[in-house]
Amino acid sequence: MTTFRYVVDNLGGNTAAAILRSYIKPKSLCSIASAYFTVSGFELVANQLEQCKRFRLLLGAEPGADPLRMAILDIWKNIDIRDSPKQAERAVKFFSQENVEIRLHPGPFFHGKTYILNHPEPIFEKQNNITTTEESERYRPTQLIYKGPTITKSDNAAALVGSSNFTYGGLYQNAELNLFDASGESTIELLTWFEERWQNSKDIKEEFLKLLQGYYKPFAPFWIYAKALYELYKEDLEGPEEGKPGSTIELADFQTAGYKSA
């Protein structure tokens, strides 16, 4: 029977989550670029990521979409299925560490996702003038020149590139299409691509943590009761619309006009 060597599609147990769990090494450096993130996706590989020396997550949702809102919707949807509040608490503990960073790419939207595992220190120099003698049609110039250590076989550098978002569906459930490079040959080029976007992205760590913390921190019964009362009576508390009298009696337009001119 023929088996896939490079393709990872989440079918027949050939999941992206299994690849990440198998290849992420303790005390390693890992960088992930994804349009979206969910705590249920993080939970699939949390045991491995928590042992990383440094971790970077770059989110790049399409225009008009909010990757943080998707993370919250995932929590609510799976509260009874996967105990997502506890997953959120674990994610907050992980992302609160100094060696863990998270940024949001301002655009243009990148649809490709990459998981760069056990990579060397991302040491780059920027050059202003780009010159090349290469004639390949596939060549794309970059201002960043990698100056870090040479990758050796013992580094176990690897990379997964394709359609899988850093979500439960992307890593485990959906039918996806990714290519896996276990040799590390593509690591420096992918790391350069990642660094280009990372340097121009916005740090959203504080916003990200505050958002997730609100979904597992316990509240005193008084505040739950106060919130319920506010939602029930907030229209009365906020007062009448501008230009309308403060009355519970519905007035016709000519009556409202008479009130305003009185």
Rank of each mutant, 00 (worst) to 15 (best):
A158N: 09
S136W: 12
Y146F: 15
I145P: 01
G184H: 03
G184D: 00
G148L: 11
G170Q: 08
A159E: 08
T142R: 09
T152A: 03
Q143A: 08
R140N: 13
S136I: 00
L177G: 06
S186Q: 13
Y172A: 06
Q173I: 15
G184N: 05
T150Q: 08
A158P: 04
S154P: 11
A157R: 11
E185V: 02
S163L: 04
L160Y: 07
G184R: 03
A175H: 07
N156S: 07
F166D: 05
Q143M: 06
G184C: 04
V161M: 10
I151G: 04
A157T: 13
A159Q: 01
Y146G: 02
E137L: 13
P141Y: 03
A182W: 02
N156I: 03
R140H: 14
I188L: 14
L144W: 14
S164I: 05
S163D: 13
N165E: 01
G170E: 04
L144F: 10
G184I: 01
Y139M: 07
L144I: 04
A175R: 15
S186P: 04
P141N: 11
T152N: 14
L171P: 12
D181P: 01
E185A: 10
S136M: 02
G162P: 06
G169C: 08
N174S: 04
Y168P: 14
G162I: 03
A157W: 09
R138H: 10
N156Y: 07
T167P: 12
P149D: 13
S164V: 04
L177P: 01
L171F: 15
S164T: 02
K147H: 04
L160C: 05
Y139S: 09
R140C: 10
N165A: 09
T150R: 10
S164P: 12
T167F: 00
E185N: 13
Y139R: 06
E137F: 12
R140F: 10
F180W: 07
D181H: 08
Y168W: 07
E185T: 06
E134F: 15
E134A: 13
Y146E: 01
E134C: 11
L177V: 03
E134W: 13
G169K: 02
G170A: 09
N156Q: 10
L160F: 04
G148M: 07
Q143T: 11
G184A: 09
D181M: 00
K153N: 08
F166L: 08
S164N: 09
L160W: 11
